[in-house]
């Protein structure tokens, strides 16, 4: 879908054609759901978040001014909904630990539901599972910025406009989120500390 087509559909929805909205949902549902899934960490809540995001996007389409891409606006809406949900959940949690990230920001840490076996290798499924748990240990804000990049593929420029941050801040926060996540993975044994690349020549072939 080109940006023009998208704006055309938005105009149709605004003029009262609710059915036209379906094309936007179909176009963006995977990305919105994936973002929500990594933000909240489970499929059931992610589905609710995604649904809420679309309904809210529909209801507030009047305030979408087309200054950014619709997708950027929609992702931001999604991550906002997820962050609010996580804050509410953190408040309700009885057993929890706190995190404090580099900004000195405190929050609640989800306790991983099971221990991870150190002998696990780079099995994709296991790695994904470990990343999921690692993400839960990042503050929602760090999670958001990393996911907008990783899942939604926004450029640093788009993220900086979307989150109202300097591009330098975007760059360093994404790096810090990755760094923290990789430290968790190394600690849990998902990424071997020294062996992975030593046998290979040239870690980068991209």
């Amino acid at each position: 879908m080109t940006r023009e087509e998208e704006l055309e559909i938005i105009a149709q929805v605004r003029s009262g054609d609710a059915d036209a909205f379906e094309a936007l949902v179909l176009e963006h549902q995977n990305k919105v759901y994936s973002l929500a899934l990594r933000m909240v960490g489970n499929e059931e809540d992610a589905r609710d978040m995604a649904q809420e995001a679309f309904i809210r996007a529909y209801n507030s389409l009047g305030s979408f001014r087309g200054e950014s891409k619709f997708s950027v606006w929609l992702y931001r809406l999604t991550s906002n909904i997820c962050i609010d949900f996580l804050r509410g959940r953190a408040k309700r949690k009885t057993v929890s630990l706190s995190w404090e990230d580099e900004d000195g920001e405190e929050g609640e840490l989800e306790i991983p539901d099971e221990r991870f076996s150190p002998e696990a290798g780079l099995e994709r499924a296991e790695l994904r599972e470990a990343v999921r748990r690692g993400l839960a240990q990042l503050s929602p804000e760090y999670r958001e910025i990393l996911l907008l990049r990783e899942i939604n593929g926004l450029s640093y420029d788009e993220i900086s406009r979307c989150l109202r941050l300097e591009e330098g801040t975007v760059k360093s926060r994404i790096f810090r989120a990755r760094k923290k996540l990789s430290e968790i993975l190394i600690r849990e044994g998902n990424i071997p500390e020294a062996s992975a690349s030593n046998e290979r020549k040239g870690g980068v072939d991209a």
């Binding site: 995977n30 994936s34 994709r124 790695l127 990343v131 899942i151 990789s182």
Partner: peptide, 10 residues
């Protein structure tokens, strides 16, 4: 990390 954060089907 990037690889494991791919898009999931809704």
């Amino acid at each position: 990390i990037s690889l494991s954060l791919g898009e999931e089907a809704a």
